[in-house]
Structure formats: C-alpha cells, structure tokens
Design a protein around this nucleic acid. Sequence first.
DNA 1: CCAAAAGTGTTATGTCTACACCCATGA
DNA 2: TCATGGGTGTAGACATAACACTTTTGG
Lengths: 250, 250
Amino acid sequence: MTKTPRDSRGPADYDLSRFPAFAVTVDVVILTMVESVLHVLLVQRGEAPFKGVWAIPGGFKRPTESLDEAAKRELVEETGVDAARLLAQFGAYGDPGRDPRMNVVTVGYLAVLRDVGSVVAGSDAAQADLVPVADVLEERIDLAFDHLMIIRDAVERARVELEVSGIATAFLGPTFTIAELRAVYEAIWGVQLDAANFRRSILGEDGWVIPVGRRARPGSSGGRPPELYRAGRAWRQSGPIHRTPTEERN
Amino acid sequence: MTKTPRDSRGPADYDLSRFPAFAVTVDVVILTMVESVLHVLLVQRGEAPFKGVWAIPGGFKRPTESLDEAAKRELVEETGVDAARLLAQFGAYGDPGRDPRMNVVTVGYLAVLRDVGSVVAGSDAAQADLVPVADVLEERIDLAFDHLMIIRDAVERARVELEVSGIATAFLGPTFTIAELRAVYEAIWGVQLDAANFRRSILGEDGWVIPVGRRARPGSSGGRPPELYRAGRAWRQSGPIHRTPTEERN
DNA sequence: CCAAAAGTGTTATGTCTACACCCATGA
DNA sequence: TCATGGGTGTAGACATAACACTTTTGG
C-alpha cells in the first residue's frame, strides 16, 4: 500500500486499474455454548459454488465502513444481535483460488454470544444452524471454501482469549454461577478443572466476578444452591485462569 | 465472502463488477536489534501522498500468490533476506480513507531479522533506515497513512510472541550468549531481569538452548568469558520466560 | 590487585494441586 | 437420610525473586 513495485511506478500510481482488484469480505465465526458444548453458527449456501454446503456467515466489505463495522453489520444481519460481548479480528485469508469465482481476500472475525438459540430463530437466514465445534474440527461436516481452516484458527484464538481476556463471561448471561463459568473453560479447553481451586482462582483477586447476593436454584438432583455473580471490569485486562499441561482430559 | 447481501443477489453473483473493488496490499513491519535497542525498518516515500514521509515497506498482493508469499516477497525485495526467522500475520486494516487514493485493505506482517545493518545496504530502496521503535511509538517520527497504529500492533504482537514462541532467538545470530538473549527480552518488554534467575529459567528445562561448547570473548572491560549456545527446537512451542507485573522498569 | 561480567547457591515467599471435609438442598 | 453439588481448609509440591557468593577475564 505504501510502496509499489519500484520499477513499474510513476505518476499513474493513482490509476487503480493498473493494480489487481480484489473483493474483500468479512467472515464471522460465531461461537456459543449449548448445554455446555461449544457450538458454531453455520449457514447453508443457497447457490453455487458449494450450493447446499455449510459455511460461515459473511459478506462483502463496503468502502464506506471499517472492517470492524462490516463484521458488526454481518453479525446483526445474521443473528439480530447488535452487540456481541466479544468481536475480534483474528486473521486474513487470501490464497489464490480459495474462491473459484474471483480474487477474494476475507478477514475473519470471532464473535461470542450467549443464548443464541432464540436468536437464530429470528434470523432471516434461509438455513442457519448451531453445530458442535467438535463435529467441524473432526471433519464430520463438510464446509465450503477454506472455512474449515478459518474455524480452526477462530477456535484456537478463542482458547487463547480465554486465558487472556474476559471472553469466558461473554458466553454466559448477565448473572452466572462459578460452576457455569468453569463449564465454559472446560468445554473450550477440553480439560477437567478442580472445582475448589477454580473457585479460589476466580474469587482470589477481586474485579473478576462480583457477587450479586442472590442464589440460583439447585438442579433437580439437589445440591446446595450456588451464589450468583456478574462479570467485573478486570476481565478486560487479563484472565485469572491459566492452562497447565498436566490437566489435559483427552 | 460466502454470503452476499441477501436481497441484492442472484445469478449475477459471478459478476465481480457489482461488488466494490479493493486494492489489497501487504505491509511488513521488520524488527531487529541494534546495540540492544529495538529498531524498525522504515522507507521514505518517493511520491505523493505522504511524499518524503517515513512508511512501512509494503506492496500489492498479486492474484497468483498467497498473503504469506506476498509478505515473503516484499521482505526479499526490501532487505534481500530470503528467510526471516519469524514472519507472522498480525492484523488487517481497512478503514475508509486510510489511503486517500483508493480503497485499500492492507494485511500487516511482523518480520524479525538479525543483523539487518548490512542487509539494508544491499537494498534497492531509495531511502531506507533503521529507526528506534521508541522514537516511533512516542511519536517523535511522523509516519504515513495509519502506519503508526500498524507498528503499535506489531510491537504488541512481538511482546506476546516473546512469551509464547521462539521469537527471541530470531533476533540473534546462530550462536549467542545467555546475556544477549536476556537483552532481547529486556529491550522488547522494557524490563530489567535478574541475570541469575534468567539463566536458570532458560537452562532449567532442556530444549530451549543447546551449549555449543565454545566461549565468547569477554568485553573490553573484562569479565569471565560466557558460554555460547544455539537455539533448540522447544522454542517453537511455548517460551520459558514470562512477564511479571512487578518487574516493570519505567 | 581491582573492576566487571559470568555463573552458582541459598533462602524466603508465593502459587498451585490434590483431596479431605463441611454445607444446603431435592427426593 | 441419602445423594448431589456448592463451598472451605490445608498440607505438600513446585516455582519465583532476591541477593550473597564464587569464577574468570581485562586493565
């Protein structure tokens, strides 16, 4: 952008037609938890290429909007949610031939939503569904274009964000229990965490979670009713829980 | 990319002209150490806009190459180095008006080189120079376009990579001393590390550095001659040294 | 011999893990 | 009262920070 090929440049630098034109799109990987299992929102393509195949929702960037704005717009169009708790760019993809129709460079965004189940119903997408991420990563579901790679990168980014930012509470409602929060970590990292130590890590430094003063109902199988918490501000800085190699589950 | 605006799409989907065309460029932030100070390679623009202003080297992506390949090509064109020890994409930038001439989306890459001093001489760039990163971040140097933001992001990425990958040895030659390695951490994080504890952290687990069996010459002011090491394979996984908030220098 | 830098030893402090144990509820 | 999950206590293992001390060089 700042430097053109040196030998082929001159005053005609302003002439866009001399340089390869690309379509620029934004693809949004929308993650959510359904019954303690990590899911991704996919749409079924209505036309060729890859007609009928599952794909990540996305669309063309407009010249008048930033990439972040384009991602936000796509998210609203697809889910009706106007403010994701997390919407972060994680990569750009521009391999030649990744779209058979034309030269396309796409920018990948990771969005985290809570309780998408009801939201998807309100979507105008012809075919949209929440799919377990494991089904995608283990290739039990075919995806269009290079979307498998994009989802892989998005999930890896989510795993890192979990260690570093407040992404965990983004999966949950305005109030939650420590056990629900722990379930998010366990699902995304695929590990089993000690409930007692997890609780201490979260409550140890203040600013992470704030007690609401109410208690949730115990499950149908009984048990002591857990305290309810809401997310504190410290989640914007760096998360309190860190992965250790010793606790791998599989 | 996979989904076009629903109401305005049809069989004419294949017609590229119906969608906004962008120029796609790759900008490479090249970092290196000069006398234990972190530097970035900048080029002086030869023409408007921002004629004479410093900028990150970069260029247009070609339809026949991937983004990674474009970054590698730019690096070679600019420095003559054909294999950077680290070349990682860290972000895409597409704000409207970021280039006054046309719609440009640029993909930022971070490159780490050792000993660029001699390399820059061999460059075909009209004006290229290594500038202390601090001069850029503290805005003592004006940059073209949004390149200040891009460099900020690149340096932040370097700080994270230092904690997580083998980026530290990429700043050094094939053999190095523990003190040289420590200087890399101190320069990039802006901290003062205890030499004794640093040494133990690096040598504690094996795979990080491998002793060569030779010793370097002490400095002109004397001192015991240090052991020489080379980088081990474990650097590809996760780094041995981690930042702590207590050791901040400024 | 002295200054300087490499390298080693040691100790206090803090953090993490595993697990025993108590608490409050549904059935 | 029993099973279940929430919540607390604690001892051992482990990691980290601080700093005194020894080693080996140049001047």
